[in-house]
Design a protein around this nucleic acid. Structure first.
Length: 814
DNA sequence: ATGGGGCTGCTTTTT
DNA sequence: GCAGCCCCAT
């Protein structure tokens, strides 16, 4: 009987979550102990995370609980009846019953959910709020960095830092490193600030202190120099009471590793851990999770080893590959059903990623129809490629098949966006370029923020130095050097010294400039005491003289960005209970970008593949799929790098829901040089069965100079693009590609012989014709354009169109 | 102290 | 092809 009741309980939970598939349910029900969820692209992992959290809060371990359940025979009969008739079970009916099975339900404030982006955290909170109401706000949901900041401020007394420490971004850090290197007179050309910064970041990810790092690199002269820079860099940060992004994690690990009180606090506070995008965690982040999960072991990691594309930033794929070794008694659930894409796309992506050796091994499947094959296209150069994409989009929009916002163009490097943007603008295709530059990285924005920081903490040298001569106040390098030297010698802060500059003979020459600056900062600080952040920004621009640098037509973009900053301050003020400058600065330190991807606006999206991770689009274009570009030239030397490129390609492919267009060029202008690259090896890995390799090499008649009309005409001259598909299969395409390689760049066009396009038949007004895409129609007019003819045709279904005869490929209607 | 001119060197970047 | 850096002339 008991056994029976347990089965009934489980069956009822199965019904309650009938919108999830079996694997997803498994990931929701297995709440105790370590769980690894390998979630393929488009497999509904956010749904799983959200449902798991609300399940934890409402039912705890109810599903697998061995807890005694008491029920009368009557009650059991009722429940059994529900089991037999799932169709009558609404969630409202089931919920009170299931609540009576709850075991060890977990209050929301005992749950820690970690994501990688603020956006992901926001989306998760949003969905949780829908399911749980206000309770959702008690969940600790945030990025690794924001969670660490919270802990570090709370337990600052255990660290070397004050609780109001600053967070330096990469640019701040690079400046400091570059300055230190200059100071140390390092002139080894291969030791760039960038390289050193990377080394230091790696060391911090490996939780090495400057000292430990030094002893590790004893037998490398380069390493020894880096160790020196690392040491003085770390001292500079500590002096300024500042941490870089890597410190936020590493310092938290140290805090919990070396102090039992904060550790115990965390372990009691966070009874359940959930980590999203686990494949992107680094070694320090793993250590952090390990520390917190120690004891209860309730950690759930969701991720996809095949989508690990941030190794260059320190992500350790091993974390997800070895999760079951790192956490004892791990259960693993594979989410392999893809709800996003059609079969051809999924199968093609599966085939490509199967070439990777270092992976768990997973095969996506989908219940959707085959859909269109993956379209492959070869073009002359990046401009023709961009025109091809623009045209295709225009035509599809014109035919009413898609809207602009259904399209995404994803590329490997940002440099590729130029050609695309230019052509899109010329041809009137509405588009938005994503992440051109991150908002908070614009110099004008950073300048103003530095002012704000200088106001909030006038003893912070870096902020003062950034703004002391912006706009120009006649305080150059030498004047500043004198003041910093004095500060050091006197054991006073830089700000104190320059306030008191009349007392020092060395500073007398610049004393009026120094005083003007200190007066400015002091008055701004006074102003800040009783004004809102947005007002302070205004005041800063007004009183500092920064306004002058924003005037004029050429500075429109800068003005826009400053206004954007003011808007974000206002936005912060609206949401915050007690808005103040410190709060605003805290918020923007960990938010790199105003999330400006507006799904609603009807425009084609252009972005890097990295930026597209996690997103999906009905139609995806992947331009520039060529050797040396994708995979990038630097990545082909090492297998692990090449495999990361393949994962990137896999991520790109799996963004597409319905249609995927891959293209590559015969010639490509990159870094001011024209190259001829072979088609990417990844394309060769696509099985013929899923690919439509229409190969219209130099038959870019449509793309020849004569074709390209101005903005408004452009969309009118539609033409079928895939009319030559018959008879050109993929293998054939490969052969042609080889011959092109041998021919060299001079005879590119010659080697790539187009399929012969026979001269079109001539039609007269009134005649019935058939078009491959638009179907049957009647010719309205025929005008001669040089050697070609422009038809006006009224199609029965597609409406009136203007088409050029040679491109339209019209047939006499039957 | 500052601005212009030549030189280099270049992926990807959730925080 | 262009941005960011360094050096030199003002």
């Amino acid at each position: 009987m008991k056994q029976d009741l347990r089965q009934i309980k489980q069956k009822l939970f199965q019904i309650y979550y009938q919108n999830l598939n079996d694997k997803q349910k498994e990931a929701v029900f297995l709440v105790k102990g370590p769980l690894l969820v390998i979630a393929g692209a488009g497999s509904g992992k956010t749904t799983v995370l959200v449902n798991r959290i609300s399940h934890l809060i409402e039912f705890g371990n109810a599903y697998y609980s061995q807890k005694e359940i008491s029920a009368s025979a009557e009650e059991i009969a009722v429940l059994r009846n529900f089991c037999d008739h799932p169709e009558i079970c609404t969630r409202e009916i089931l919920k009170p019953i299931l609540l009576s099975f709850a075991d060890d339900a977990c209050p929301a404030y005992h749950i820690l959910a970690i994501t990688f982006t603020n956006k992901a955290a926001g989306e998760m909170k949003e969905r949780l709020r829908k399911q749980l109401g206000d309770r959702a706000d008690e969940i600790w949901a945030g990025t690794f960095h924001s969670v660490c900041v919270r802990l570090l401020r709370q337990f600052a007394s255990y660290t070397q830092y004050g609780s109001n420490f600053l967070i330096y971004d990469q640019e701040d850090c690079k400046r400091i490193i570059a300055a230190k290197m200059k100071e140390m007179e390092i002139d080894t050309p291969e030791l760039t600030a960038k390289y050193v910064m990377n080394q230091i970041s790696n060391a911090k990810n490996a939780l090495l202190s400057p000292k430990e790092y030094e002893s590790k690199v004893q037998n490398s002269s380069k390493g020894k120099v880096v160790a020196e820079i690392f040491k003085s860099y770390q001292e500079a940060l500590l002096d300024a009471n500042a941490m870089d992004f890597d410190d936020l994690i590493a310092e938290t690990v140290k805090l919990l590793r070396d102090n039992s009180e904060p550790l115990t606090w965390c372990q009691h506070k966070f009874r359940y851990l959930l980590v999203d995008e686990y494949q992107d965690t680094n070694r320090a982040q793993y250590q952090l999770l390990k520390l917190i999960a120690q004891g209860h072991g309730n950690i759930m990691a969701v991720g996809d080893d095949d989508q690990s594309i941030y190794k260059f930033r320190g992500a350790a794929v091993e974390n997800i590959l070895n999760f079951d070794q790192n956490f004892a008694d791990t259960k693993v659930v594979f989410l392999e059903q893809n709800y996003r894409s059609t079969k051809n796309i999924i199968e093609a992506a599966n085939a490509v990623i199967a070439h990777n050796e270092t992976r768990r091994g997973k095969k996506l499947w989908c219940a959707q129809e085959n859909g269109q094959k993956v379209m492959l296209r070869n073009l002359e150069d990046q401009e023709k490629e961009a025109i091809y994409i623009a045209e295709h989009i225009s035509e599809a929009v014109m035919r009413g098949k898609h809207r602009y916002k259904d399209f995404a163009v994803l590329y490997r490097t940002r440099a590729q966006s130029n050609a695309l943007e230019t052509i899109f603008t010329k041809s009137g295709v509405p588009h938005r370029l994503l992440a051109g530059m991150r908002f908070y990285e614009h110099a004008e924005v950073k300048d103003i923020i530095a002012y704000l920081r200088a106001i909030a903490c006038p003893d912070n040298l870096a902020c003062l130095l950034r703004v002391i001569n912006v706009p120009k106040r006649g305080l150059g390098e030498t004047a500043i050097k004198k003041a910093t030297d004095l500060a050091e010698a006197q054991g006073k802060s830089f700000f104190e010294i320059i306030c008191d500059c009349t007392s020092y003979r060395e500073l007398s020459r610049n004393s009026s400039s120094f005083l003007a600056f200190t007066k400015l900062i002091l008055s701004l600080r006074e102003y800040a005491e009783d004004h809102l952040p947005s007002e302070i920004v205004h005041e800063v621009i007004d009183k500092s003289g920064y306004m002058d640098t924003l005037l004029g037509d050429e500075n429109e973009e800068r003005r826009k960005n400053v206004n954007e900053l003011i808007s974000s301050a206002r936005f912060y003020e609206e949401r915050s209970e007690a808005p103040n400058l410190e709060g605003f600065l805290e918020e923007i330190a960990l938010v790199s970008d105003v999330d400006n991807y507006d799904r609603e606006s009807d425009a084609v999206v252009l972005m890097t593949i990295h930026a597209a991770k996690g997103l999906e689009f009905p139609v995806v274009f992947l331009p520039g799929v060529e050797e040396n570009l994708f995979p990038s030239a630097q990545s082909v030397m090492r297998l692990s790098d090449l495999e990361e490129e393949r994962r990137l390609f896999y991520v790109a492919m799996t963004r597409a829901k319905e249609e995927l267009y891959i293209s590559f060029c015969k010639r490509r202008l990159l870094f001011g040089k024209t190259n001829s690259n072979r088609v990417s090896r990844f394309v060769e890995e696509l099985p013929d069965a899923y690919v439509d390799a229409e190969y219209i090499a130099s038959k870019e008649r449509s793309l020849s100079d004569g074709y390209y009309f101005g903005q408004s005409d452009f969309q009118e001259f539609a033409m079928p693009r895939f009319s030559q598909a018959k008879g050109s299969n993929f293998s054939q395409f490969r052969q042609k590609d080889v011959s092109f390689q041998r021919a060299g760049s001079s005879s590119v066009t010659a080697a790539a012989t187009p399929p012969t396009s026979k001269k079109s038949e001539v039609f007269r007004p009134g005649e019935r014709v058939t078009h491959r895409i638009f179907g049957d129609g009647t010719i309205l007019s025929a005008k001669s354009y040089g050697s070609d003819t422009l038809y006006e045709i009224r199609f029965d279904k597609a409406g009136e169109k203007k088409l050029m005869a040679t491109y339209a490929n019209l047939q006499k209607a039957k």
